[in-house]
Amino acid sequence: MYFLLNMLGVLVVMSIIYLCSPNKKNLKWKAIITLLVVELLITWFMLSTTIGSWVINQIASFFTWLISCANDGISFVFPSVMANEQIDFFFSALMPIIFIITFFDILSYFGIMTWIIDKVGWMISKISGLPKLESFFSIQMMFLGNTEALAVLRQQLTVIGNQRLLTFGIMSMSSISGSIIGAYLSMVPAAYVFAAIPLNCLNALLIASMLNPVNVSKEEDIVYVPTKEERKDFFSTISDSMLVGVKMVIVIMAMVIGYVALTAGVNGILSFFIDGLTVQKIFSILFSPFAFLLGLSGSDAMYVAQLMGIKLATNEFVALLDLKGQLDHLAPHTVAVAVTFLTSFANFSTVGMIYGTFNSILDEEKSKIIGKNVWKLLLSGMAVSLLSAMIVGLFVW
């Protein structure tokens, strides 16, 4: 029965996104079905084979090395902070952005990143039937994270239209950052974290293609290559990259602080009228039907719905810390779907991070496309998390 509920959940989520699509006639069903089949195969490969786990671990090791390099730089300036066992979010997740942007800008300077975007994007777009740049962005988010991936592609984003920019904003709701994978792994089983990462990226591509269908001509489906006149010398390029990174860190920090504080303020107002009422509790009630569609029993469904509310109103760290203390008391299926759902940045503060990133790498006018479509970003983030959790749930009982 619960397995059938899990399968029904996939259909329900897809149906809701279809109903919310503004342009149902232009949906590419072949691409959507193809992506779903690919996701099922990937999930089976990662959760059911030894080779799959080894491949994912090797990829993760590379990004762990990147973060360690970034931490060396941070430790030189803030040695006492980095020596602590518990490092603040600002230093563990935001500060590494400076090095990651610089590293990939160096690859772009020598044409390596442009080549990868073109080839990998071509391969994914052939499978999915969707544009190359969007296809590669979905893969790039797998370990870089939304803000870092957007920054790396900032030259590409400056030459595309607002409608396609919205696609990147929608997709950005469903990533994580390589800099915090270690933090996730210290709290919950690694297998489900690594299963969620590629599923979220492919589901982000799938959901974005439904919520914001865009027809891209062959002439537009290209990778932007700066002309010789536009290119600066090497040291000017990396210096500019570092300054872009610093600016982004400050903007994102301000957005995160503001949204978390706003949630606390709203909770204070709600508790004034009804004692103990919070935004998190409201969301947990709203999400309880979807928790049952994850194939969960009564008590587990309400607990996971509560985790959903915590994640959306605050962030996934708060929810994962709560889940960490309950792992020994939950069924394997409950742990699998809960961890997979929580492994992404889909919450209110992420909308602020995306808006801040657009504002810092593009301009205020282009950033308005995010402000006008906040509901699409939130809907996409939750739908991707649910869909990924439901697919993983099919393989773990």
Rank of each mutant, 00 (worst) to 15 (best):
I170E: 05
M95K: 07
W44A: 11
V152K: 10
F348G: 00
D221T: 08
G9K: 07
S284H: 08
A70V: 08
Y224H: 14
I112E: 04
S388R: 02
V216T: 13
I250L: 15
A346Y: 03
I238E: 08
M173P: 07
I42G: 06
W65L: 14
V392R: 02
P226K: 08
I257F: 15
N203E: 12
V13W: 01
N267A: 05
G121L: 05
K368L: 13
W122D: 10
F99N: 06
F194T: 10
F283R: 00
T167L: 04
V13D: 01
S15T: 15
S299N: 13
Q326E: 15
N26F: 06
L202M: 14
A60Y: 09
I117M: 15
G298P: 04
S92A: 14
F110A: 01
N215S: 11
A70G: 13
S125P: 07
M82P: 13
N6G: 11
A291M: 08
I370N: 03
L243T: 12
S53T: 14
I207C: 08
I180K: 05
I116Y: 04
I282R: 01
P289L: 02
G161H: 11
V279M: 13
M1N: 11
P226S: 07
V223N: 10
S271T: 10
Q326M: 15
E39R: 00
V225W: 07
F168C: 04
F110V: 08
K368D: 12
A338R: 00
F78M: 11
L133A: 03
M302F: 13
G129P: 03
F290N: 01
D118I: 00
S172D: 04
M248N: 14
G356N: 07
D105A: 00
S172F: 02
H333R: 12
G393K: 00
L94C: 05
A336V: 05
V337L: 03
S271M: 02
F272L: 13
L394T: 01
G129Y: 05
K232L: 12
M210K: 03
V337M: 05
M248T: 14
K281M: 06
S239M: 07
S75L: 03
S48H: 11
I139Q: 04
I32G: 05
F90W: 15
T49F: 06
I310F: 00
I67T: 15
S284F: 12
N373D: 09
D322K: 14
T334N: 06
I252A: 13
S236N: 15
S236T: 14
A190P: 08
F283D: 01
L185V: 13
I180M: 13
S172K: 09
